[in-house]
Design a protein around this nucleic acid. Structure first.
Lengths: 132, 132
DNA sequence: TCACCCAACTTTACAACGTAAAGCCAGAAA
DNA sequence: TTTCTGGCTTTACGTTGTAAAGTTGGGTGA
């Protein structure tokens, strides 16, 4: 791998494309759901997850369906004191992929914080242009 | 502020709601655009921004419009060598709000990485349930 | 000078998505 | 046996992201 030239690294094509940002995870609600689930590998009941993420029933249901269809979450329907109880658990693949996603997020944060430190003498555009 | 109890902090309602995640920024393409712009306070030409973020013309145009309507980006149309040249610049408010957003993102990353370290003996759900 | 091309965007059309509201079902209560 | 409630699912709809088509105007070759 060639050494990185700091003068050009920040302007390379695709520098800020963030291809790795898996769409399924990149959603406010789903971010919360996955973070909850990753912290509780044994699973979380539907109702508790709902509270943790401040979601409505329908909303959580829909997002879980999306995550399940992608294979990142497993849903176990059972009974607790003769009442339906849905337990959601992150899958191994889900955990892996989510942490990959989090790594990309980390680089976004790093890029943005680094960018925010740039002094205002950076080049804007080529010389010789004028407003219309 | 009461001291945080680690045994309950992770289960408080809304713990993973991430209300602060401004929707306008929470989009793959817009994340890249804003990070680019924050690193170049004097502005970036449309064409260069397009390359930096690997976006199509129409795509970038639409996203810029959204960011402009929210007041986070200003668009200056001018001429360069007798050709139209659009320069995009982040506004003061845009910069401020984007960095706020980035702070929330940082906490998401922190939460997720912390959660991923939890040992698999954490409580799952109440005792006494059985699969259907 | 006329036709054509290309650069630099903008607009349009459509499919996918997130969400609130309505619906459903089973057990408990009255 | 009707009503209520917990625990989800399904539906319907407005919003969004994106690719494709459209626009405008300066160059350029014939």
């Amino acid at each position: 791998m060639p050494p990185i030239d700091d003068r050009t690294a920040g302007t390379a094509p695709g520098r800020f494309a963030y291809d790795g940002l898996e769409r399924v995870f990149h959603e406010k609600a789903r971010l919360g759901i996955m973070t909850s689930l990753v912290s509780r590998p044994r699973g979380i009941a539907f109702a508790e997850l709902k509270e943790l993420c401040h979601l409505t029933d329908g909303n959580l249901s829909r997002h879980l369906q999306v995550l399940h269809d992608s294979g990142f979450v497993e849903i176990e329907k059972g009974l607790h004191r003769n009442r339906p109880l849905t337990v959601c658990r992150i899958t191994d693949d889900g955990r892996k992929r989510f942490l990959d996603y989090i790594n990309v997020l980390e680089s976004v944060v790093r890029d943005a914080l680094k960018a925010a430190r740039v002094e205002p003498t950076s080049p804007a555009i080529a010389e010789g242009w004028s407003p219309a």
